[in-house]
Nucleic acid binder design. Structure first.
Length: 298
DNA sequence: GTCCAGGGTGAAA
DNA sequence: TTTCACCCTGGA
């Protein structure tokens, strides 16, 4: 663990700037559109947030995406972590070929900067989506930040903390989690953290099949089909995961004439059949399409 | 100030 | 299989 002295030393380090090897994408919709909850927008369109134990600023000048962080000696590692986080190796051409002609959102895929599916830390992702139920993005961000505050401070901002390990959450206890605003989700997170404290590594589920990993995740309190699919899609490399929430459900019914009373699990199966390994990407776009309609008063 | 929906889950009917 | 309570915050 870092000592406080080491942390303050970190803040004085020189900043490094790196150019990321991926085409410009929609920073706002990707970083702050509901799949991750630890990025904060600046007035100039750039974002600041947490990547593991680093505060990173990410920006796009139209042609290139770049990231800045403190600690130039860790340049290579952060660059690698950042590209991994953004899944820079995704075959964008193939993705576009699969989704560009879909009704409703196809033109967004074809003509606009991409909304990317990212590859988050599984524990952070699990915490985030246990908090997400019956909540909205501002509130989820608030809850995740509150949990993070139990971890190590790595910067001056009120969100600049390294997310604590499950053990720390267990020691804090359900009552503390309630006090910091998680409501009835406090019980779910406390119990899940307890199970995880004795679990070797959530990331192992990346090696399991989609269905095996899904079943394992749903064994955690507070994790149903929707939360499991979010964690699978956004942190465990399961592109065939298709989280079905009320918005995506509406979009699927509207765009593809599914039955009004179709079961959510059936919507997921339908999506896997249609989109294959790009179901998770399609889900982000269908969610966005539905929200856009709502905003535009359609 | 009030009202309501908000990227569901778990328990009980 | 279906219904309902659950915490509480942001936005109308």
């Amino acid at each position: 663990m870092k000592s406080v002295a080491e942390v303050s030393n970190t803040q004085k380090r020189e900043t490094a700037s790196i150019t990321l090897d991926l085409e410009p994408f929609d920073l706002q919709q990707t970083l702050d559109g509901g799949q991750a909850f630890r990025w904060y927008g600046n007035d100039d369109g750039s974002f600041r947030g947490i990547l593991g134990s680093h505060i990173v600023a990410i920006s796009c000048d139209g042609a290139t995406v770049s990231a800045e962080f403190a600690g130039s000696e860790e340049r290579d590692r952060v660059c690698r972590d950042m590209e991994d986080y953004l899944v820079a190796k995704t075959d964008v051409a193939k993705l576009r070929a699969v989704l560009a002609n879909e009704p409703g959102f196809g033109s967004l895929v074809a003509e606009m900067p991409l909304i990317r599916v990212m590859r988050q830390d599984p524990w952070e992702c699990l915490v985030s989506f246990i908090c997400s139920q019956n909540s909205n993005i501002p509130r989820i961000k608030q809850m995740v930040a509150a949990v993070a505050r139990m971890g190590w401070r790595i910067g001056a901002e009120d969100w600049a903390f390294e997310l604590p390990d499950p053990k720390v959450v267990v020691d804090a206890g359900e009552m503390h989690l309630r006090k910091i605003g998680l409501g009835y989700r406090a019980k779910h997170l406390a119990l899940t953290a307890e199970m995880l404290a004795n679990w070797s590594n959530l990331g192992e589920l990346r090696n399991a099949s989609y269905y095996e990993a899904r079943e394992a995740l749903m064994g955690f309190p507070g994790v149903g089909p929707k939360v499991a699919d979010c964690v699978l899609a956004y942190s465990l490399d399961k592109g065939e995961a298709f989280p079905v929430d009320v918005h995506v459900r509406r979009a699927a019914i509207r765009l593809y004439n599914l039955d009004d009373d179709v079961k959510n699990d059936a919507v997921g199966e339908w999506a896997r059949d249609r989109f294959g390994e790009y179901a998770a990407w399609a889900q982000l776009y269908m969610f966005r399409d539905e929200i856009n309609r709502r905003i535009n008063g359609a």
